[in-house]
Simulated scan of single mutants.
Amino acid sequence: MSETLQIRDHLLNELETGVRTSEVLIRLIRPEDWSYRPQGNMRSLPELVRHLALVPRSDLAIMQEAGAEEAGEIEVSLDGESDPERLAAALRENFELYKSYLVSLTPEDLLNRSTKAFYAEDSHTQIQWQIETLTHLFHHRSQLYNYLKQLGHELHFSMLYM
């Protein structure tokens, strides 16, 4: 296996850890938690969880040069959903779709295929987009962890690495 594919796989394994641990956090949400918003200028818990569940799918669309309209349709595709099991399942399904795309790429495509987001001036290679997705998902997983801590859930940071 080439070094490029090894790096891709290491990044996918890290993303899978983020997905798996996010699924655990999502499943901890209690019915009374759904109205939580830490501050008026921040996402509510439902907005955050729906966005987190869509990160792999929306980032995939962006790295494949979807337009603003298509990306917007993805972002609202879970609106109204508040079942933790369905949201965790959506995250897993979106990760599997994302992973399928990445493993279909050749090493040359990963390193050299450059695409541009509808909102950006500069383009990125597919491997750069993969790193972006990883950091994007972990950012929102961390937010969810903090929201749940603020809601009184008994959490320990070690659960983020199991």
Rank of each mutant, 00 (worst) to 15 (best):
2 S>T: 06
2 S>I: 04
5 L>E: 04
5 L>T: 04
7 I>Y: 00
9 D>W: 04
10 H>C: 12
13 N>Q: 08
13 N>T: 10
15 L>D: 04
18 G>T: 07
18 G>V: 05
19 V>C: 10
20 R>Y: 11
20 R>F: 13
20 R>Q: 10
21 T>S: 10
21 T>N: 07
23 E>W: 12
24 V>S: 13
26 I>K: 00
26 I>V: 10
27 R>D: 09
27 R>F: 03
28 L>C: 12
29 I>A: 02
29 I>Q: 05
30 R>W: 06
30 R>E: 08
31 P>D: 14
32 E>W: 07
32 E>S: 09
32 E>R: 14
33 D>Y: 03
33 D>I: 14
34 W>S: 09
35 S>P: 07
36 Y>K: 02
38 P>L: 13
39 Q>N: 15
41 N>A: 09
44 S>M: 14
45 L>M: 08
46 P>W: 04
47 E>H: 08
47 E>M: 15
48 L>C: 03
48 L>M: 04
48 L>S: 11
50 R>D: 01
50 R>G: 08
54 L>V: 11
55 V>E: 01
56 P>H: 00
56 P>G: 01
57 R>A: 13
57 R>E: 07
58 S>T: 10
58 S>F: 05
59 D>W: 04
59 D>Y: 05
60 L>D: 02
60 L>P: 02
60 L>E: 03
62 I>W: 01
63 M>H: 13
63 M>K: 05
63 M>S: 12
63 M>R: 09
64 Q>T: 15
65 E>D: 12
66 A>F: 00
71 A>W: 00
71 A>S: 05
72 G>C: 01
72 G>Y: 02
73 E>N: 12
77 S>I: 07
79 D>S: 07
82 S>Y: 10
84 P>T: 06
85 E>W: 13
85 E>D: 15
86 R>F: 06
86 R>Q: 10
88 A>Y: 04
88 A>D: 00
89 A>C: 09
89 A>I: 06
89 A>Y: 00
89 A>K: 09
90 A>T: 05
91 L>R: 12
94 N>H: 14
94 N>A: 10
99 K>A: 11
99 K>D: 15
100 S>H: 14
102 L>H: 05
102 L>M: 09
105 L>S: 09
106 T>Y: 03
106 T>L: 00
106 T>C: 02
106 T>K: 08
107 P>N: 06
108 E>Y: 12
109 D>A: 14
110 L>Y: 00
111 L>V: 12
113 R>D: 14
114 S>Y: 07
117 A>D: 02
117 A>G: 15
120 A>M: 15
120 A>K: 03
120 A>Q: 13
121 E>K: 13
123 S>I: 06
123 S>M: 15
124 H>E: 08
125 T>Y: 06
126 Q>R: 08
126 Q>D: 04
129 W>I: 06
133 T>R: 03
135 T>K: 13
136 H>G: 07
138 F>V: 04
139 H>I: 14
140 H>T: 11
141 R>E: 03
142 S>K: 08
144 L>N: 02
145 Y>F: 11
146 N>H: 10
147 Y>C: 03
148 L>P: 01
148 L>Y: 00
149 K>F: 01
154 E>Y: 15
155 L>W: 03
155 L>N: 01
156 H>L: 03
156 H>V: 01
157 F>Q: 00
160 L>M: 07
160 L>S: 01
162 M>G: 14
